[in-house]
Design a protein around this nucleic acid. Sequence first.
DNA 1: TTTTCCCGCCAGTCG
DNA 2: CGACTGGCGGGAAAA
Length: 847
Amino acid sequence: MFLLIFKSRLLSYCLYKPQALTKTPRKASTQGTVLTEIQYNMGPLMTPTKGRETGTGEPWTPTSNLKMLMSAASPEIRNREKELCMDSEGGDDHGLGEEGEKQISRKEKSLGLLCHKFLARYPDYPNPALNNDISLDDVATELNVERRRIYDIMNVLESLHMVSRLAKNRYTWHGRANLPQTLAKLWQVGEEHRYGQQMQQIRQRSLEKEFDSDGEEKENDEVEGGEQGQKEMFFVELPGVEFKAASVNSRKDKSLRVMSQKFVMLFLVSTPRVVSLDVAARILIGEDQVADQDKSKFKTKVRRLYDIANVLRSLKLIEKVHVTEEKGRKPAFEWTGPEDFPSVKETTATTATAKRKLESRTSVDNCAKNLFSSPGSKRSFTRHPSLIKLAKSIQEDRRKINSAPTSPALPAHQQKAAKKPGAPQPPVLTPTEARASTVHLTPRAQFTLQPTGAMSFHPAQCSPLIPMLLPQHQEGSPYAIYMHPSSLRPHPLTRPQPTSLAVRSMTFEDKTGRSPSDVTVQGHSSATNKLPTSSPSALKRVCSERTSEESPSKAKRIDPSTRDTSPKLCEILQARLKARRGGLVSSRPSPRALHLDPEFVNTPGSSVAVAANQTLEQNLETFLEKEEKVATSDSEAGLTPVRAVPLNPQHLHTETLIPTGYLIPISQQSLFSYKDHNTESSKAFTPTYNIYHTPTAGIHTFNIFSGHRFPSPAILNFTLQNLGLIPGPGSVPTYSPGTGHTPEHPSSLPSPLPPHLGLHQRGGMVFVKPMSPVPVQHQMTGPGGQPLTLISLQQMTTPKGTALPQHSFFHTPLATVVTTSHGHTAPAGTKTVYIPQRKLDVTAEDT
DNA sequence: TTTTCCCGCCAGTCG
DNA sequence: CGACTGGCGGGAAAA
């Protein structure tokens, strides 16, 4: 047997990396390698370490190889996997090995499973008092795996700051304590890098390619290129969790870590929180356009993404799904982690600043380190204590800012208004802003503190959302639809009550509308790409008629391109920031705002209090308290109790363009008036649907509900259906209900979210996104809350003129469907919107 | 087939 | 140096 194995190994070895062999230096090493190989078979590992030897069973014994072979031969035995326990195969392999019993199907050796085992060893929230050291040797030994694999896991965990390296061979376990901050940060950085736009572009491009014979528009991305240039890889750090061992970190790329962070960023910035593998790979590769040719590179990247995805999956942050498109289904992953990580607007600013400094070489921020400059030059990063200080000071500032009295809901708008004198009314959101506003924290859940975050935090939180109730389909489970605050006027009376708040945040990210022309033309890309901001604004404009001021010349047109040149963008952004700050300055200090310390993180309650809008907060809190019980129960049931928030119709009027809205399943009780049973809607068993809209252009408007009044259910349903509703049972991730972290359960996510909000409901809730803001605007919504027409329908139907082919929506029977559209908005005047829609559904797949 | 992704060679670092 | 790390990609199991 051995012999056999040996031979095969050898053979493979020979085949291995031809190029390597060719290299001169390699040759010599080759020999060595062969030897190694032999050794390997004999039992010793690659990296003999004490741990190994002492280690219990040697995985690498010939037997194991044998096992593998056998397993291959007789697959039947497998299926035992699934044990999350860390047991590592019981002891040593010998006993088992022989039988063949052990077959180790590939699955049993999967990184994901290994990660599970690993995670099982540590609590989600470690007790600081205890020793949280992790010894790689021990872990490798106990889990009975080769070290190499542990590195893979550690690298991604490190990227999430769930562990940090202390020294060689030693890591410290942080668990999920820092996760909220990390996510906030990553989101922020992701925004800065405009990953949302990039993704959009890529998607669009691929789409175009499909349809367009031409195939290449490469140019488009000058913008990207330019930007890209700058887009270096960063390893984002949290202030509290810096590297402990400088030596350790200093070197190298750490690409897996960076890649992992970037990957996560993609989820955080994309609106439907679904990222397809190929898109991710392209973005990660860097310059994508050229990427096409580089198959191998792409392949490698994908492999790595799978590695990362496997650990993220075991962390329950993402889950595998498939996106079905015209072409067929593509592997993708959906974010199932917390949605409400503290948003850090301010932080953003901070980060940006820091980054800039970095670039200028002035200083390095501790938040993000630049590992390499894009093109390849690498930067060594060092961390300066001074940076920390800097960060702190910034935070302080932010804190001040945060304290500003402005009502939570308002700030963004106000700011905007300030900036743009011309059109105060229609707020134009920068993507960032949009995001921020979009991000909802649940009152309880919120972690609090993000360093900066207050701003985004409060507004988003409660008030902004306006819940709407939908008639239920069948069983009458009601849904609430939340409108995005942004769409609402600043003062909506939204009651704090909304209680359940946001479930999913919607944002519209990137590029909103592109005109078809733009698409074709290279120009578009640049504009679009460059300005992340612009797009949202564009969207806005479209929605509200007021666009004119934005682009005076093209008032009606939504062309992003006009607007922004990068420089301009910068200016704008800066201005905004300033405005923001200034505006907010008065606000009250939030205690925690700046600290990232884990401790803070965990305290949800306080953070809430911090929120700017006291009233709202108070209400919320009260509400929450009351609700808590209910919520809990509901959550279990899978329903989210939502309270209807009374809206004033008046507020809604035109503005209604809600960029985003969602539907949340409401508990029956809350339904009261609205419930009606509509069977007609499709559906499946699951009461809820998720609707995603494409980020891109924001295409469908959801203006449907302007007031709390609903359009007739029938209409609604119809619309929804058309929009692409899909019944989405959705897998529901489980979250632990309490805000607090429960240290105990490793597996459960401590969700910051209140149970009702929890993702778990995701399956049940409908997430509606406005696809295109544009058309709807004016007429649609009557101030009175009249039902609006759904433009989306139209849009969907109007494919023809467009150069872009339109795609039909799909429903997925069970799963969530995501509709993506990259639409282009036509000139406002026309109202025609071209929205080629493409997207389809995401099916949840494996568990 | 395609999608996943395990395995482990080997190179760069570090102690 | 030897031990750690971890990039990388062959190629095979799984879908």
